[in-house]
Each structure stands twice: as C-alpha cells, then as structure tokens.
C-alpha cells in the first residue's frame, strides 16, 4: 500500500517534470546530471543482477555443494575462485554484492578479494569484447587475461598472509558474516519452504540495496563531476610516451569508471594514440578499481584495506603495462 503510493508519486513527478525545458539549467550542471545519470542507468541493472545472484547463492545453493566442489589447498582455491567469473558474466559493479554473498557463505576475505579482482576480466563477455576490439594485436588480449589472473591471485595471496584477514572488513559486515556462519542469520531464520525463503530473499534484497545503492549513487556523482571538471587533453597528450602513457591511461581508467564488459570498445578509439602497454594497464586496472568501485567496496572493506588493495593493484598494473611496452 505504502509502496503503491510512493511508486505512483514518483511516476507522477516524472510525468510532470518531463515537460520542463532542460535549458533552464546552466550547461555545466546539465551535463553533470546527464553524465552521472548515464553511469547510474548503465550500472544499476548490473548491481541488481549481482544482488539477485548473490541472494540465489546465499539462500538456494547448499553449503555442502560449495565445499565439495572447491579444492582444499588455499592457493588452488583462489585459482578456482578467480575462474568463477567465467560462469557469472557480471560487470564489476555487480561483483561487490556477489562477493559479499560469497563471504556470507563462508569464503575467506582473500578469496573474496581474488574473486572481486579477477571476475570482471576473466568472464566471457569481457573476453569476447576485448577480442572483438583488438584481436591478437600487440598482446593486448593475452596481457589483459593473463595479467588480470596473475594480479588477482597475487593480491589474494598477499592478503592471505595477513594475520587477521577479518579485520580488513568493516565491523558491520564482519558481524553480519559471523551471524550468518553461526546458523542464526537471516538465511536460515524462520524455517524452510518456499514462502519463508522468499520472505528472507526480499529482506536481503532490501538490505543489500540499502548498502549498495547509496554507494553507487555517490560514486556515479563523483564520476560525473570529475568528467565535467577534468579536461581530457592533458591525459591524451601523454599517450605516446612509454612511461607516461601507462600512468595517464590508468588515471583515465580510474576516473571514467566504465564497465569492464565494454571498456575495450572505448579504449579502441584511443588505440592509435596510446602504446599497447598503456591500453593493457587501462583494461586491467580500470576493470579492478575505479572511483565507483571504491565507493562500492567501501561498504565492505575498511579504508586501510582499500588503500593497500588499490596500491597493490596499481603497482602491479604499472609493472604489467611497462612490461607490455617493452615487449611490443
């Protein structure tokens, strides 16, 4: 009932305001709104998809199944997890809710990080679009896939050396995980059967969107604001230099915040201006980390953990980019 009223109110608001002239706003502001809105409209479906799959994994995949399928050795487990993205062609913004679902299901923190970093690159849609954009030219496709795989596992291994990986999680999320693991969490409360499970799924959807959507909206607004405020010329001008092209494209990847499924098409347009190492760094770094992803990951990891994560991924991507430039 309340829902119907709110929904009707929103629809009416939209219909009324549709007739207003956009020219009333100053150009800069108008473009800021358009750009931020386009990031939201592009990402929101992926976030929904990620949340839905995460709910499905939490409530409908039996725990025994996961434990039987997964290898015992930690490194092998992480390798397997980094390939899970092949089955789940979700763009990186949908991976954060999914990684949260995995952790609730008992995955360790380093494992979830490995998944988070690997899945946007090692998934069929990304591989196909990268192939369509670049073919086998200059080792860009191989550099992206192999580089993404190695970096994700490297970061996972480094974080697994941490004495207390759980301390990398925000206190709230850690508590939610512990509760779920104790067997009294929302995924088991209220009995079995379809209706109680559907009720829990609806609650989980409400809770996950409550955590994710504010982060997504803030991240999109930041991405839009940077786009309006920062001129592209500077970054593009640096493109031809073997060292600066890698750095410039990583910064571009960070601020532009587009999904890994399509970033290959975007950067293809720059193909002639930039060296291949820069492009590989763009495709690897941008898929793993960008302004929108950081606001999303902030819901789950502590700031200190995120700083380390970003620094590691950035260093590794730099090394990868320089390496490709040397070879190409």
């Amino acid at each position: 009932m309340i829902g119907a009223v709110i929904a009707a109110g929103l629809v009416v608001l939209r219909l009324v305001s549709a007739g207003w002239a956009p020219e009333a706003l100053p150009d800069r502001l108008r473009d800021f709104v358009t750009l931020s809105t386009s990031v939201v409209i592009e990402s929101l479906p992926f976030v929904f998809l990620g949340i839905l799959i995460s709910i499905a994994v939490r409530f409908w995949v039996p725990e025994r199944f996961i434990h039987r399928v997964m290898p015992k050795h930690p490194a092998l487990r992480r390798v397997t997890i980094s390939l899970v993205g092949v089955l789940l062609p979700v763009c990186e913004c949908g991976n954060v809710p999914l990684a949260r679902g995995f952790m609730m299901k008992g995955f360790s923190v380093p494992e979830a990080m490995t998944f988070l970093l690997a899945a946007p690159i090692l998934n069929p849609v990304t591989i196909v679009t990268t192939y369509q954009a670049f073919g086998w030219d200059d080792g860009i496709l191989v550099g992206r896939i192999a580089g993404g795989f190695v970096i994700a596992n490297l970061v996972g291994w480094l974080f697994s050396r941490h004495p207390d990986p759980r301390s990398l999680l925000t206190a709230r999320f850690d508590a939610a995980c512990r509760l779920e693991a104790s067997g009294h969490g929302p995924s088991t409360a209220g009995g079995r059967g379809f209706v109680p499970t559907a009720r829990r799924a609806a609650l989980a959807f409400a809770e996950e969107t409550s955590t994710m959507l504010p982060a997504l909206l803030v991240g999109s607004a930041i991405a839009g604001a940077i786009q309006v405020g920062l001129s592209r010329d500077v970054l593009v001008a640096l493109g031809g230099n073997p060292i600066w092209s890698v750095l410039a494209l990583m910064i571009l990847a960070f601020v532009i915040a587009i999904c890994s499924n399509v970033d290959a098409f975007f950067i293809l347009a720059f193909g002639s201006t930039f060296l291949p190492g820069g492009i590989v760094a763009f495709l690897v770094f941008g898929a793993m980390v960008d302004v929108k992803m950081i606001t999303l990951m902030k819901t789950t990891f502590t700031t200190a953990a995120l700083v380390r994560l970003v620094a590691l991924v950035a260093l590794a991507s730099l090394a990868l980019g320089f390496g490709v430039n040397l070879l190409a």
Binding site: L10, S17, R28, D31, T34, T37, V228, L230, S231
Partner: peptide, 19 residues
C-alpha cells in the same frame, strides 16, 4: 537527477572539455 531534471543530451560545455 533521475526524476525531476528533464532528460537531455550533452552540450557544448562537454565538447569544450573533450577536444
């Protein structure tokens, strides 16, 4: 942003920004 501002295309302000 999503419901009140009428949808519009990008403008010359963005052209200036993007070469």
């Amino acid at each position: 942003a999503l419901l009140v501002v009428p949808p519009s295309t990008l403008t010359t302000a963005t052209v200036d920004q993007r070469d």
